[in-house]
């Protein structure tokens, strides 16, 4: 097909989908995560001792949304070969070599990988799957990850989400999309006392204020990203 664009980063793939490396080649261009303005570095320096809650933004990871059918072997095996992980089933997640894949919906998964690696991963996935029906969308600029850890993490998160996060109901690795205050988050249990939230960029300030407020009575500290 005719290539009307001149930019080499924007690639027409065999699926007739435009893929684009969205990370500047010039590393000196300043990137601002959704919580950049909160100046978490300074907050981290002022942290409480013996905090019941430890918060950390995992800023500037690359986020890819994967869409496809589990009944489509080209899709499932393609994902498996590119990621080295089997697609997790309902409400499950998997981790491999720094990449995390989370079930979002029967035909949707969220993959996070190190910042800057998303373009390459998307290429690998597209190559592995060929011309079958699927979609991959880069949403790295649209969301961020916050980890919530500590002895009081679970108690604090009960103020944030109506989902039953008790370990008997939400063991390590389980992932759900639910409400977070009046916003929403993808919530994953990463350990007995550890959780991870994926939140949308435009709601990040609200979610962060909420976390600080809800953590107040336990004492909290912030780890630098």
């Amino acid at each position: 097909m005719s290539n009307t664009t001149t930019q080499t980063d924007a690639t027409d793939t065999s699926q007739n989908i435009v893929q684009m490396n969205q990370i500047p080649a010039d590393a000196s261009v300043r990137a601002e995560s959704p919580l950049y303005h909160a100046d978490l570095k300074t907050v981290a320096e002022q942290g409480t001792q013996d905090a019941g809650i430890v918060l950390q933004e995992l800023a500037l990871l690359d986020h890819l949304v994967l869409r496809g059918s589990v009944d489509n072997a080209a899709f499932t095996t393609g994902v498996e070969s590119a990621l080295g992980m089997v697609l997790p089933a309902n409400l499950q997640s998997a981790e491999h070599e720094g990449r995390v894949i989370r079930w979002i919906s029967p035909d949707e998964w969220l993959v996070t990988t190190a910042g800057g690696m998303g373009f390459e991963l998307e290429q690998q996935l597209r190559e592995a799957m060929g011309e079958t029906h699927f979609a991959i969308v880069n949403v790295s600029g649209g969301q961020t990850v916050i980890t919530v850890e500590g002895a009081d993490a679970e108690e604090m998160l009960k103020k944030c989400t109506p989902y039953d996060i008790h370990i008997s109901h939400m063991p390590v690795g389980k992932v759900v999309t639910s409400l977070f205050g009046k916003s929403q988050a993808v919530i994953r249990r990463t350990g007995e006392q550890g959780f991870e939230l994926v939140i949308r960029r435009s709601f990040a300030d609200y979610c962060w204020l909420w976390l600080q407020d809800a953590s107040g009575e336990f004492g909290f500290s912030v780890k630098e990203s």
Binding site: N90, L91, S105, P106, P162, Y163, V176, S178, L179
Partner: peptide
């Protein structure tokens, strides 16, 4: 029926 568990009405 897709998540295969009960959820609060607020999610719907």
């Amino acid at each position: 029926p897709y998540c295969e568990e009960h959820r609060e009405e607020e999610e719907f």
